[in-house]
Amino acid sequence: MELRTDLALISEWIVKGTHVLDLGCGNGALLAYLRDKRTVTGYGLEIDDDNIISCIKAGINVIHTDLNQGLSDFADDSFDYVIMTQAIQSIHRPDLLLLEMLRVGRQSIITFPNFGHWNARLSLFFKGVMPISRTFPTEWYSTENIHLCSLHDFEKLCVTLDIEILQRAVVDTTHHSSWFMRLMPNLFGEIATYHLRSKLI
């Protein structure tokens, strides 16, 4: 199975034989990969019927869940990792969900599109309109991305919530990095991946 490169990157951060919760798990590709390559167990949470069917087809344990309702079905510290790829920007209260993620899991891995990317900045600065790009392909009125943020915004939130950033990777939409992305990630990075841990434990 060919895995999206961001998923491949995430799987490198995950220790073998661990227990994982994947929020917005889509068709279960990441969990299937982790199960097959890293003997990881766990569950995917998904709200889309067709994705749920795909997960079941892939033999993934999937639980129909509205992430906006929090993770109250899960006990504290019940997972080694709680993962959320490309979904935090569509959550009603990302801050509350982040806290929930680090309540039920020891560590979290999050990916999201960087709204601080130069393309978004130029669009607002010169054209005065919300950007439409390969990272943000939908118009502002119909997009599911209701809480967009830049890398700086996200890292500020982590400070406020007492969340420690263990690792960060910044790539473009084809999931490649470059020297200028490493130099000025908030300006050149399109997709950010963070590995987090709560400082409070």
Partner: peptide, 17 residues
């Protein structure tokens, strides 16, 4: 489902519209 999850049992759950 919650009781099964608490025991880390294998479970899938679908809520059909």
């Amino acid at each position: 489902v919650k009781a099964l999850l608490a025991n880390k049992k294998l479970v899938s759950y679908a809520e059909i519209k």
